[in-house]
């Protein structure tokens, strides 16, 4: 199973936010779309950074009541690890758990083609596991 298989089911829509938008704008976007992270991009294609609900949450400690007016670029992560459509789900799963990322943008060459979360990865692993279990059950039945 590959990253492109996940994108096939969830689609390649990516929610982006500009680096000069406020954290309040960002939080409204996250809440409205019911997502955990947005790609920071000025033009919708080039990745300037990534910003997650964790960045917002941790920033409450530092900025308190001033946080709504702080700019996205202040709290975003600039060095972004990406994956490619051809990467396997197992590879991505291992990168996510080892490096403690929950979201990876998907880039095809220079083009941003999607974003996958640890929830997406888990959902797909789960369907594989269930499929394997069904196959094994059928196999066991035949053996008897």
């Amino acid at each position: 199973m590959k990253v492109s298989d996940i994108l096939k089911t969830k689609g390649s829509a990516v929610i982006t936010v500009r680096r000069d938008e406020t954290v309040l704008d960002l939080s409204e976007k996250l809440r409205q779309e019911r997502i955990g992270a947005a790609i920071v991009s000025m033009d919708g294609h080039t990745i300037d950074g990534i910003v997650s609900e964790r960045d917002v949450a941790y920033a409450v400690a530092a900025h308190a009541s001033r946080l709504p007016t702080v700019l996205v670029e202040t709290i975003m992560t600039k060095v972004v690890v990406v994956c490619a459509p051809d990467d396997t789900v197992n590879e991505v799963m291992s990168v996510m758990t080892k490096q403690r990322f929950r979201h990876l943008p998907v880039q095809d060459g220079q083009k941003l083609v999607g974003i996958i979360s640890i929830g997406d990865v888990m959902k797909h692993r789960l369907s594989e596991v269930q499929l394997e279990a069904d196959v094994l059950r059928d196999y066991a039945r035949v053996q008897r």
């Binding site: 609900e53 917002v56 949450a57 308190a64 001033r66």
Partner: peptide
């Protein structure tokens, strides 16, 4: 969770921290 904080900011704005 951190999600409660992030989504809560949209709802409560500057009041959230206190």
């Amino acid at each position: 969770s951190e999600r409660d904080l992030a989504y809560g900011l949209a709802k409560y704005g500057e009041k959230l921290a206190d």
